[in-house]
Simulated assay, not measured.
Amino acid sequence: MIPDPVNAFVPGTDVRIAGRPGGPLADLTFAAKDLFDVAGFATGGGNHDWGRGYRVPDRHAWAVQTLLDAGAGLVGKTITDEVSLGILGESAFDGTPLNSKAPDRVPGGSSSGSAAAVAAGLCDTAIGTDTGGSVRVPASFCGLYGIRPTHGRLPLDGMMPQAPSSDTTGWFARDAATFARVSAVMLGEPVPKTLPTRLVVAVDAFGFADPEVAAALKPLVERLGALAGEVREELLAPQGLSVWGRAQRTLQPAEAWSTFKDWLDRDNPRLAFNVARGLVMGSTIPESELGWARLMRQEARARLSYLLPPGTILAMPTTPFPAPPRGLPLSRQNPVRERILCLAAHGGLAGFPQVSIPGATVDGLPVGLSILAARGADTQLVAVAKALEESR
């Protein structure tokens, strides 16, 4: 088992699989969130009761197989928030992975172990999942590159679902060059050399973030503007960021309840309080609320389509604040989650690609700048991230 000073890997597992010799990623190592199937190893899902009654997979998940075929070597399975229902990265079953950039703070979740492993240098890249922010948020908190691809672009075979209308596979890297190499393989196309020529700055998102975060990200935004040329300010969510958050908070829990209800009926599993509460709430959402949320999803998609024609990117803070302290009391966690969701809800609602870029800090704590582009323009975002690092 790889040394694990940050508690990133699932205890009791010893997953080491060599990649294909000579592949484009043959010099890299990767880790896989324990929502991805690895042949011969149980998929734990962050809950010790999840595996009961489920067979050990005999084939790798698509994302795992793609990286192995490209030559990257798998070094372990990483801790996740319980059945991916979390955003802070604290696990009642396997413990909280250490955020090496902010050791007294949470790593962010639910792809907590994957982010922690990359941030600590235990692997070069790691795959996670993003439904409501589970790659974007830990990327911001741990000072990493992270991507939520266009929804529906990548196969999710062998990836444990949560809310299928929002679920995606994403990945992390410490530097833009590695991020670009991995992204080209995962997205199946080379990273372009041409860059977008228009930048939209989401003024409501920057206003929603803590003032210190907006100030810390300003130099990155200015450098983005210099790369793009044309810059303008717009509202991301004219209806209100909290309204988009409410819509995602309606659709995602209802889908999660549908995903997990048979397991709950069959096994009556042990669940952390916040997870159990979220599933119960998801089971009680009326059809009238779901109908409203689906309409708001259509509005969010229309808004982003308007803001992001070809050749345009949008900039916004990934999270409204740096990583919160570890071990917050339950009564203080929900307001934190709500604010995070207000800046992450558009991902699950609209499904547009988003990359979180490191490079800013508040009192020494990392905060990420996100860029969005039109659906399918994922590699353009990767190109911008790479150009931004090279322009330093």
Rank of each mutant, 00 (worst) to 15 (best):
H48F: 11
V275E: 04
E233M: 06
S305A: 15
D157P: 00
L271D: 00
S110A: 15
A350K: 09
L308N: 03
L251C: 02
E389F: 13
R294A: 06
P211T: 02
A177N: 13
F93N: 05
G44I: 08
R277E: 15
S356P: 01
W257L: 05
P324A: 02
D94V: 03
S288N: 06
R136I: 03
D4I: 02
L295P: 00
I313D: 07
D94C: 07
L88H: 05
G23H: 03
S391G: 08
T96Q: 09
P335S: 01
S331M: 15
S140I: 10
A228D: 01
V185E: 08
S356Q: 06
V336L: 12
Y54H: 13
L67K: 04
T194S: 14
A226E: 13
L314S: 03
A350E: 03
V64N: 06
Q333W: 15
P286H: 09
T197E: 10
L330I: 15
P366I: 11
Q354W: 11
P103E: 14
S140G: 06
V83Q: 04
L227K: 09
G108S: 11
H48A: 11
S134F: 08
W263T: 02
W171E: 05
A216P: 00
S258N: 07
A205N: 05
E82K: 02
V231G: 03
E222F: 14
G207S: 07
C142W: 08
A18H: 11
A315P: 00
L341T: 14
T312Y: 14
G71W: 05
A276M: 13
R392V: 14
D378E: 11
F321S: 03
R297F: 10
L156V: 10
A360T: 04
G158C: 05
G76S: 03
P269N: 01
T250I: 10
N268D: 12
A32G: 04
D262A: 12
G229D: 08
H60T: 06
E299P: 00
A237M: 09
A209M: 07
K386L: 15
G240F: 02
I79E: 03
P269R: 01
R303F: 01
K101D: 06
S134E: 10
P219H: 11
R294G: 00
P309S: 01
L235Y: 11
H151F: 15
H60Y: 12
P103D: 15
L304A: 02
S112L: 12
G40R: 13
T312E: 13
L290S: 02
G95M: 11
G121M: 05
T129N: 01
D262V: 03
G44K: 08
A18Y: 07
D262T: 09
D378W: 15
